[in-house]
Write a protein that binds this DNA or RNA. Structure first.
Lengths: 205, 205
DNA sequence: CACCGGATTGACTCGTTAGTCAACCCGACG
DNA sequence: CGTCGGGTTGACTAACGAGTCAATCCGGTG
């Protein structure tokens, strides 16, 4: 996968840890966390079985690492968006956009995060609820501020608004993952717009 | 668990199959499908290990049965709602209501169905996509008809509308399952209303 | 060159558990 | 009373796979 110039081998210490993580993404996405074996990860990475345990305490920790790494990036993106003074609707568009672009950029990684963590209330979801809830809290902040400013109406509690918004995004991603929804460059942009339109403007004529 | 009067043993053939299924719901909800052992199900049912295999081909088939049984009921409910001539918004309210009431009535069963099947794109989700998609298709029908009648605006493709609607519902249920959202009788009714308000009326003031 | 220590290897252990199966229980029926 | 068969039992097997570990490799250092 990674392209290496043989002449600069010296300068490229080849981060095996990274290679293992990237391989794990592919394997988890393909076979699922539970069904795959640690040896599958090692094979996919072109690395000895034991090396996985040199870098990670357990199979679980590989997934934890993938999730935390990426989720932190997401939280940072949301915080950044929150800090701007865009209209609330555009903030939501930016957030939905970031998540969808993450999927566009690395579908396997997003698939793993959503399927194995975010939507897995048993196993891993439970372990990472706090982190997941941080994202909800941030988005809730966006909605609440908009309600105070009168941009959004206040009848709908922010908690439900957030769940609807985030749930809509994940459901669309899941649709792509399952192959139930058409994918493609324009589908991505169109999804961003339509999700935000639905949540902000509603379906009613 | 089950109380039997020795004098009427004859008249009560005690459906062990059902007892096993009900026990499985509790165990799957508590420990998760992957983490629990078949012996846990047998123990919870107060039945010998082997009997599980007398009634079911495999551990997987127990879950399959639970899912298919309940999903069929859901599909029927949606079809029934679809057949009425209520306004689209009320149809959506009825559908959201049915799902939320299912959770109210048997949280464990809904938890299992959502966590282990509906949201599990690897493992079981993949096996049952067709069935799951039937529900989406039915709801899509509701939306499309509303768009033709001019009740809903047509800019938003029905696929996205459905994903947003259904995603919102599942996300709220997941919030309850995770313990991130307050539960309680009024929370249930309020959720129904707010989800539909969000999807139909939008957040914008 | 000798030595050190971290990276890397992969064969092996050890617990776990899905699924099997031979035996047993018990009501029905002749 | 005997025997037939489906329901029921639970010990057992067979496989599997996570995690361990002793050995090896290799670049750096004195």
């Amino acid at each position: 996968m990674a392209v290496r110039d043989p002449r600069v081998t010296k300068a490229a210490p080849v981060d095996k840890r990274r290679i293992i993580l990237d391989a794990a993404v592919r394997v988890f996405a393909r076979d699922g966390f539970h069904k795959c074996r640690v040896s599958d990860i090692a094979d996919e990475a072109g690395v000895a079985y034991g090396l996985v345990y040199h870098y990670f305490k357990s199979k679980d920790q590989v997934l934890d690492t993938l999730f935390l790494e990426r989720w932190e990036v997401l939280l940072e993106a949301i915080r950044h968006t929150d800090a701007t003074d865009l209209p609330a609707e555009e903030k939501l568009h930016a957030i939905a956009g970031f998540i969808i672009d993450s999927y566009r950029h690395d579908p396997d990684l997003m698939k793993v995060i959503i399927v194995e963590v975010t939507r897995a209330a048993n196993s891993f979801g439970a372990v990472h609820i706090r982190k997941i809830d941080e994202a909800y809290a941030l988005i809730r902040g966006v909605v609440e501020k908009a309600q105070q400013r009168g941009e959004f109406r206040s009848e709908i509690p922010a908690e439900f608004a957030v769940m609807s918004f985030y749930g809509a995004i994940e459901q669309v991603l899941t649709g792509w993952i399952f192959g139930l929804l058409d994918e493609g460059e324009d589908a991505y942009d169109s999804a961003k717009a339509h999700i935000v339109q639905t949540i902000c403007g509603g379906l009613a004529a």
